[in-house]
Design a protein around this nucleic acid. Structure first.
Length: 131
DNA sequence: GAGATGACGTCCA
DNA sequence: ATGGACGCCATCT
């Protein structure tokens, strides 16, 4: 899949955007996260295979954000709420209050947030952190 | 078409 | 600990 120059709207049906392919892979991973566990955008990105044509540097810098984009466009049935940021917190949305709902869903699954709104990855992280 | 913006992470003061 | 700048670029205004 060669990254073809996207001339504004000419790509509507020419091919499934590279982005869509990547999103599919992300959702596949997120679906495997068990209830009551959480993982991070960066962890998912680094676990996924880097798309061809994307430099390591680029992927490292943008991968996590692409995962975030994938979460923003999740199809029904994907436990998007189990993905949080590397600081152990629920990421605030630029608009809306989805992050509140997210924390609520996690707490309903037994995930505990400390006073600073952080989750202990040693307890709730997925995959389970080895030590 | 130009400019701003991200459901992030890392580094440095 | 924590606050701010930066990288990177596809989308959205």
């Amino acid at each position: 899949m060669v990254a073809r120059p996207t001339k504004a709207r000419e790509v509507s049906f020419s091919s499934l955007p590279l982005r869509q392919r990547f999103f599919d892979r992300v959702w596949e991973v997120v679906r495997r996260i068990p209830p009551g566990r959480v993982t991070t955008y960066g962890r998912i990105a680094s676990d996924l295979r880097r798309p061809k044509g994307v430099t390591l540097r680029h992927f490292k810098a943008s991968g996590p954000r692409w995962v975030g984009q994938a979460m923003a466009h999740c199809p029904p049935g994907v436990p998007w709420h189990r993905v949080i940021n590397a600081q152990g917190k629920v990421s605030r949305r630029a608009r809306g209050d989805g992050h509140r709902r997210q924390q609520g869903l996690l707490e309903a699954e037994g995930v505990v947030f400390d006073a600073l709104g952080r989750v202990d990855f040693a307890v709730f992280g997925w995959p389970k952190r080895q030590r």
